[in-house]
Amino acid sequence: MNLKELTQSVGELEEEKVLEMLNNFVASNPSEEEAGKAVAACQEGMAEVGDLFEKGEYFVGDLIFAGELLTEAINVLKPVIGSGDTTKVGTIVLGTVHGDLHDIGKNIFKSMAEAAGFEVHDIGIDQPVQAFIDIVKEVKPNIVGMSGVLTLALEAMKDTVDGLKEAGLRDSVKVIIGGNPVTKEACLHIGADSFTTNAAEGVKISQGWVK
């Protein structure tokens, strides 16, 4: 299989072509090493999707579809990837803060972060401060990601960061916030380490933290 072509087809969101290539590949009985390379090629394609989003050629709907495509691709590859531990680059706790029920952006970030090799613990929507504290204590992540769409989510994000501080957990994690209302000013007010309205950029920031 031509890995460059695979990367390109993922980047161009050519679903039929990607699945056809991968099905043929799996039928050829590849080694685990070869399968690992195919996964990496898909991940590179996903990074291209992120770049195209940043350039304004792709939009949120395209990112959502990219997430779906990647999930499908990994499912096809699963039987040949093997059971060995895949390399985990870091752990992220992710949730939509209390008062807010929106999760589309969070889910896009999740699929892109997983594609980049992060272990993601998604605690869901409308999550109280205590839920973030509990999961941080349990899984000891590198990064906490908070999401929200409504303006009121900004105050809830601040509550959550304050809660992490009071629980003595704030210094053990990096905090990134994402969603429609986040800005540099909001980031300072909340006490997060970084902010983004672009899931691909959020993954890049996260990668920078676990290097």
Binding site: H98, L101, D103
Partner: peptide, 13 residues
């Protein structure tokens, strides 16, 4: 259309 924990009714996916 569902009410959140704090009372704001929203449109979930």
């Amino acid at each position: 259309f569902v009410m959140s924990s704090e009372g704001q009714i929203q449109h979930p996916e």
